[in-house]
Simulated assay, not measured.
Amino acid sequence: MNELTAIPTTTAKDWASDQEVRWCPGCGDYAVLKAVQRTMPDLNVAREKTVFVSGIGCSSRFPYYMATYGFHTIHGRAPAFATGIKLANPELDVWVITGDGDALSIGGNHTMHLLRRNLDCQILLFNNEIYGLTKGQYSPTSRIGTRSPSTPFGSVDRPVTPCMFALGSGARFIARGIDVHKNLPEVLKAAHAHRGASFVEIYQNCVVYNDDVFAGFTSREVAADKQLWLKAGEKMLFAGGTKGLALDADRLTLKVVDADDPAVITHDPTNKGIAGMLIELPPEGFPVALGVIFEDPRPTFESAVIEQNVAAAAGKAPDLQKLVSKGQTWQVEKEPRDL
């Protein structure tokens, strides 16, 4: 019996703290919080061995609402805190909660190094393509033309694609979900089952400063045609199973074909090249790739550090005094003072 099939010993209510949840009415953060609280019992993990770490932003209230250990840290530095926590106690189950502004602006450097090191943790990046907590300025993921207090004439920046950033940083697990979608818990379970840094981008609607920015693929009218939920070993089909993706061998890109076309690709999460194509599918004429896009495990950072420390200490007896006295030492004699 593995951790995903074990009989839950807790309920969603057990994972909810006694703190009043305070986000704007209708915020997508509520849905993500509920999805996480519903998911935790199925993971069969202990609350006292679980830690949620956040930086600064609307999403960073998250640790207050989980009945676990938690750290609400400083802007962009949640990955650094998470690294210290995991190295100090590798048995802890560490979750990093962050936003597009927190993780990809001031925290971009820290996020990159956590991913390349492959620390065993889950990173949930809430992407609403705007700075919400600081009242609606454009963020690293805001689209060209976004009007905000800091870009009154429209942003001219080319936005960051979070999953491509993760892929380029060496992440070994990359997935996408939608705040209110029923499949989000399954994505979270897959991220938790992966040993190493799991990067999950969650499209999250900001009802105040960027409402319906994802409506082009999340609204009920277009969802079936514009969402491609990937499953390992299954064909890449969407539009109610009538369309699929195939490789255009001449251009080395993906193309849309009819579902009965034998060229329809079967999803292989270990294929990094196809993963990059899926992440950057053009918005026109293509669906948005969701679910687990890339997964190719490798040894974790903390396991390598522990192994190195064990090897360094082999055959040695701890002797603090000997260590302090090593090398040049001297003693300062106190001179009598003339009175």
Rank of each mutant, 00 (worst) to 15 (best):
N2A: 10
E3V: 13
P8Y: 04
D18T: 13
R22P: 00
P25T: 06
G26M: 08
G28C: 06
V32T: 08
T39L: 01
P41M: 11
D42S: 13
V45A: 00
V45L: 09
A46Y: 04
K49P: 00
K49E: 07
S54N: 03
C58K: 08
P63M: 06
Y65W: 13
M66D: 00
Y69H: 15
G70L: 01
T73V: 02
H75Q: 14
G76D: 07
T83I: 14
T83R: 15
A88Y: 12
A88S: 15
L92H: 03
T98M: 11
D102Y: 10
G108M: 12
M112Y: 13
M112E: 07
L114I: 10
L114R: 07
C121L: 13
L124P: 03
N128P: 09
K135E: 05
Y138H: 14
P140C: 12
T141R: 09
I144M: 15
S150V: 06
G154A: 10
V156N: 10
V160K: 05
T161R: 14
P162S: 13
F165Q: 00
S169Y: 02
F173R: 03
I174L: 07
I178G: 03
D179Y: 10
L184C: 09
V187S: 05
K189A: 01
A190K: 10
A191E: 10
H192A: 14
H192R: 15
A197R: 08
F199G: 06
V200I: 14
A215Y: 05
E221I: 11
K226G: 06
Q227V: 10
K231P: 02
G233P: 03
E234S: 13
K235Y: 07
L245D: 09
L245P: 08
A246V: 05
D250Q: 15
L252E: 14
L254I: 01
V256C: 08
V257F: 05
V257H: 06
D258G: 10
D261F: 01
P262W: 06
H267F: 02
P269M: 04
T270L: 05
A275H: 08
G276W: 05
I279P: 11
P282R: 07
P287V: 09
V288F: 03
I293F: 03
R298V: 13
F301E: 14
S303L: 04
E307M: 10
Q308H: 12
K316V: 14
K316G: 04
A317I: 05
D319N: 15
K322F: 01
V324C: 01
Q328V: 09
W330G: 13
E333W: 04
R337F: 11
R337K: 13
D338P: 04
